[in-house]
Amino acid sequence: MGDHAVDALLRVGDSCLVLAQRLTAWCGHAPALEEDIALANVALDILGQARGLLTRAGEIEGAGRDEDALAYLRDAPDYRNLLLVEQPNGDYGTTMLRQLLFDAWAVELWPALVFSTDPVVAGIAGKAAKEAAYHVRHSASWVVRLGDGTEESHQRMLAALDMLWPYAGEAFLDDEVDVAAAESGLMPLPSSLLPAYRHRVESVLAEATLPVPPDPWWQRGGRQGSHGEHLTYLLAEMQVVHRAHPDATW
């Protein structure tokens, strides 16, 4: 294992970290108290997954970087997250649709990672698979409620779908890092998860009375470090205290 392994782990770990950061912004501001609790729970699980993978990536890299060095001291071009998760929270419907598009990927990825040749990754995946199964139930149930709710909520979900759909495909585009990671047995090939993903997302959208948009040009580049405009703001806020005190421990 080597560079491709570090990169492959960061692609998942950074996606979890950035999404957890997005979700924490809802804490105290959700539409109902029960959702404050649920979203905090999901964010905690996903943050935990990120910490596990970042720590493991740092160990494999062997340059002495721990989870915090990786989270707080890298700039946007070194982040490997999916473009999907850096998209702004928007309204609750946008957040829930983004979550569904992520969860439907995670719920296929983690059970496959249980068979990773890296025992640490397999261990992280064992726990994460159970968490993702709950997460996707939560986000899918909200997409259904909001899609099939009122006229207003339906319109809002159509707008969210229009905004987020082009980011739904990036997780399944293989490149040479993915091929190397799959050959080493570290991770499944991203494209192998697509059929199950597509089936799940399409059936949730159908139940939500939302149309499945035609395949667009899938926006891409996040996994290679080429991000959109939002990520630098997110990182600046997340990293500000840590970077202001370079010699400190917390």
Partner: peptide
């Protein structure tokens, strides 16, 4: 206030 449409939609769907 921002959550009103979400709660209404949940009730309508139910």
């Amino acid at each position: 206030d921002d959550g009103a449409w979400v709660r209404e939609a949940a009730v309508a769907h139910a």
